[in-house]
Amino acid sequence: MSARELLRGFQRSHLAMAGLSLLALLLLLALAAGVIAPQNPYDLAQLDITDGRLPPGERLGSGALALLGTDDQGRDMLSAILYGLRISLLIGTGSTLLALAIGLTLGITAAWHGGWIDALIMRVADIQLSFPAILIALVLLAVFGQGSDKILLALVAVQWAYYARTVRATALVERGREYIEAARCLALPGWRILLWHLLPNCLPPLIVVATVQVASAIALEATLSFLGLGLPITEPSLGLLIANGFSYLLSGKYWISLFPGLALLLLIVSLNLVGDRLRDLLDPRLQ
């Protein structure tokens, strides 16, 4: 299915189109954060603690408008959200894609080969999944230290097993179907059957799992940051911004948590809309 056909498929659904546009807008904002943000929230020299906790619409000491207010460090929330969007997206999608690639390879290998390879891969996945995700990530981060690359690796380590399991289950069903037998009968090479016949038929459930996982990866990253083991407070992601404002919610300073929360919500909703439509389009049977 070509990119043009995919786009046409999206256009048939208004909701999916809205999701796609929203996601595109958020991506654009994240990419252009360095240009359009009124303030660089990573540059501590630009922050002034006396600007802390300004409500939306007030002006900073420097005279610049704080459209969405400021947090307790005096960071302009709008700028922090734009930069945070960038980090959250990068870590969420990056870890998901990497985990997807690893899980897909391991899962389909397990289903295809069976035997001890299958047993080995799936038992490792079982052990992995029997620990709470947060615990595994905590241990890894405690060992390797902080930083966005470390948290990316931790999220990959937590997620791959979901994909391996999903893909294996689907592949086991699909490989028993007659079209695989027919491909065998046509003497097609094994790798060709695996890549061209089996793999594409295992993708739809994975796409759904992946869209959900992007969201949960972003949430897990926020949790880790909140616990002080994720990203440093000087480079806040959306999740960390929400966590920052958490203690001020009851004192009426809603904007510190609310606006990053809204941004996160829009991001996750748009991702899910796009993922849902993508699944429909990639499966000819659902059209």
Binding site: R177, E181, A183, C185
Partner: peptide
């Protein structure tokens, strides 16, 4: 060997499952 394999082809009962849906 390949020719001999191609020489024998199966026609399946369930034509739906026998055709790759993609």
């Amino acid at each position: 060997q390949r020719r001999a394999r191609l020489d024998v082809q199966l026609i399946f009962q369930n034509s739906h499952a026998a055709l790759n849906p993609r």
